[in-house]
Amino acid sequence: MVSPVLTPTPDLMPGQLLARGVCRHMASLGFAVIEEFVPDRGLRVDVMALGPKGELWVIECKSSRADYMSDAKWQGYLGYCDRFFWAVDQAFDVDLLPEGTGLIIADGYDAEVLRMGPEDKLAGARRTKLTRKFAMHAARRLHGLRDPDAGGWG
C-alpha cells in the first residue's frame, strides 16, 4: 500500500488548507469535489461536493472567527445544496456556528464530519442544472491544467 503524500503547504492560506483536508475526506467517501465553485451569479462556495447518489453538499471553510463573522452570504448557499456544512479547525469556537448546520473538523490533511447537516433535497430541475454546471466546471478546470495556453475556460 502506498502511503499518502504529505506535501508541504507553505503557499496555501488557512482556509485553503481546510478545503484541502475537506476535499480529501469527501473523496474518501466517494464524492467528487470542486473548490471555489460558483453555483449562481454572486455566490462562490468554498467546496461543492457531488456524491455517488447525485447528492450535492456545500462546505464553507472558516479559518477564524473574523472569517466566519465576515460571511454574510452563507444562507444564500442553502438553496444550492442538499446539505450544508461548516469546516473549521480544532481551535475554532464551534458555539459560534448556527444550529441546524453540519460541522466538519479539518486540517490540511484530512477531516471528520462531527455533525451531519440536515437534508433539504434540491428540486430536480435545480439539481440537474447544478450537476451539469459542476461537470462543465470540472472538465474546464482539468483542460486548463492540461493545456494552460488553450484559453476559453472559466
Rank of each mutant, 00 (worst) to 15 (best):
T9K: 15
M13T: 09
M13G: 07
M13W: 10
P14D: 14
Q16S: 10
L17T: 14
A19D: 05
G21W: 03
V22T: 02
V22R: 05
A27I: 12
L29Q: 08
L29V: 09
G30V: 13
G30K: 13
G30C: 12
F31Q: 07
F31L: 14
V33C: 11
I34Y: 09
E35Q: 05
E35H: 04
F37V: 05
V38I: 15
G42R: 02
L43V: 09
V45G: 10
D46Q: 00
M48L: 01
P52C: 06
K53Q: 12
W57G: 00
S64E: 06
A66K: 14
M69P: 11
M69Q: 14
M69L: 14
M69G: 13
A72D: 15
K73L: 06
W74Y: 11
W74F: 15
W74C: 10
Q75S: 07
L78G: 03
G79Y: 02
C81Q: 02
D82A: 14
D82N: 09
F84P: 12
F85D: 10
V88A: 10
D89V: 07
D89G: 02
A91F: 08
A91G: 13
F92Y: 13
D93S: 02
D93P: 09
D93T: 06
V94I: 04
D95P: 00
L97S: 05
E99H: 00
G100E: 05
G100W: 04
L103G: 01
G108V: 05
Y109G: 12
D110H: 00
D110V: 06
A111P: 13
V113G: 00
V113M: 08
M116L: 12
P118T: 01
E119P: 04
E119H: 00
D120G: 10
D120K: 14
L122Q: 01
A123H: 05
A123L: 11
A123Y: 06
G124I: 06
R126W: 10
T128Y: 13
T128N: 07
K129N: 07
K129G: 01
L130G: 09
R132G: 02
F134D: 14
H137D: 09
A139K: 09
R140P: 03
R141W: 01
L142Q: 13
L142S: 11
L142F: 05
G144C: 13
L145H: 11
P148E: 00
G152A: 11
G154L: 14
